[in-house]
């Protein structure tokens, strides 16, 4: 299936088609104003204007003669960094949304409307209707169900608004329980899991926390430290030099299930044959949970310690079913 134009080209074309009607509505506007309005660099605005000014239609002569091209007030542009369109061609108005563009915004609105503080459901519904009418085809059927992230998000937002730290008990994947003080930076969800990213005062570093592993979350009156806000890496998890390497075996087609662990290793066997991949994990205790959750798909090849931990974990889990459940038949 075609992957469409390189991201750059479709974004650039969209910008050109959007910039023209904006410039038509503004008799004279500075490059910096346009850049701020569209949220792009002044350089990108200048590039676009340079291209628009030499573009047009073939025209009757099919020679792209002067009258068939856009034109700008070149002196204003070159000396004052100001854009004045002096001749227009073909386009009069803003383009419609594509089915998927409208769908992306509609799904975003659905998501917002499920959060408690965005209770203006009517405004959101009317916006969705407008987006649907403004699309060139029926918006793609992308639907987001309401989610209940719980009170944690409201508390964290209140802490952000007040510029104070939050405190919570946190059970690490190793099973250790610690009280953390954190400057909240961003809440993200990946699939079904919610994460808080923030500056952890215990570790003195940016850390990612699962919301569902927090307990006793509360707002403190300790101020946050503003200067670390920009230090947020874009990837949720970062590897560490102390990571352990584990080799696992799984069908080649299933490797994508382990994307979180950045599996390494060559493997060009048959599509349905097993392959080996090397994962980097902080400790084996996260691994045993991962492997037990992918029974029949992934198994640990080595090192032996990782195999034993996984086996003991599954064996202990299976042994629980030897107990007789009160009021029910045993296995």
């Amino acid at each position: 299936m075609s992957t469409g134009p390189a991201l750059g080209a479709s974004d650039k074309l969209t910008f050109l088609l959007s910039l023209v009607p904006y410039l038509m509505d503004h008799e004279s506007v500075s490059v910096s104003t346009v850049a701020a309005h569209f949220g792009v660099s002044p350089e990108r605005v200048r590039d676009a204007v340079n291209l628009i000014a030499i573009s047009g239609i073939p025209g009757e002569t099919r020679q792209y003669l002067h009258g068939d091209l856009f034109d700008i007030h070149w002196e204003e542009f070159e000396t004052n960094d100001t854009i004045v369109l002096t001749h227009l061609v073909a386009i009069d108005d803003s383009p419609r949304f594509s089915a998927r563009e409208a769908a992306a915004l509609i799904a975003g609105l659905q998501y917002l409307s499920s959060l408690p503080e965005n209770a203006d459901i009517e405004a959101i519904a009317s916006l969705m209707a407008k987006l649907t009418r403004s699309a060139s085809a029926t918006p793609s059927q992308v639907v987001v169900s309401s989610t209940e992230p719980g009170e944690a998000i409201a508390l964290i937002k209140a802490a952000v608004a007040g510029g104070v730290q939050i405190e919570f008990g946190y059970l690490s994947s190793r099973g250790e329980h610690e009280v953390r003080h954190v400057d909240p930076l961003r809440i993200e969800s990946v699939d079904r899991d919610w994460y808080l990213r923030g500056w952890c005062h215990l570790r003195g570093a940016v850390r990612t926390f699962r919301l569902d592993r927090m307990s006793g979350l509360r707002i403190t009156d300790l101020p946050t430290d503003d200067r670390i806000a920009e230090a947020l890496p874009d990837t949720l998890f970062q590897g560490s030099d102390s990571d352990l390497e584990v080799v696992v075996e799984l069908p080649a087609a299933a490797v994508s299930l382990l994307a979180d662990f950045a599996p390494q290793g060559a493997g060009t066997g048959p599509a349905d044959g097993p392959v080996h991949r090397t994962l980097r994990v902080a400790h084996f205790h996260g691994l045993k949970r991962l492997v037990a959750g992918l029974a029949g798909v992934v198994s640990v090849v080595g090192p032996p310690g990782a195999r034993w931990i996984t086996r003991d974990w599954a064996a202990a889990g299976a042994a629980r079913y030897d107990e007789v459940v009160p009021g029910e038949q045993g296995e």
Binding site: D11, S18, S94, F97, E101, A103
Partner: peptide, 12 residues
């Protein structure tokens, strides 16, 4: 998709 939709919105 959202980014391109916003660009189009900004043209208004």
């Amino acid at each position: 998709e959202s980014r391109r939709a916003l660009t189009k919105l900004n043209s208004l």
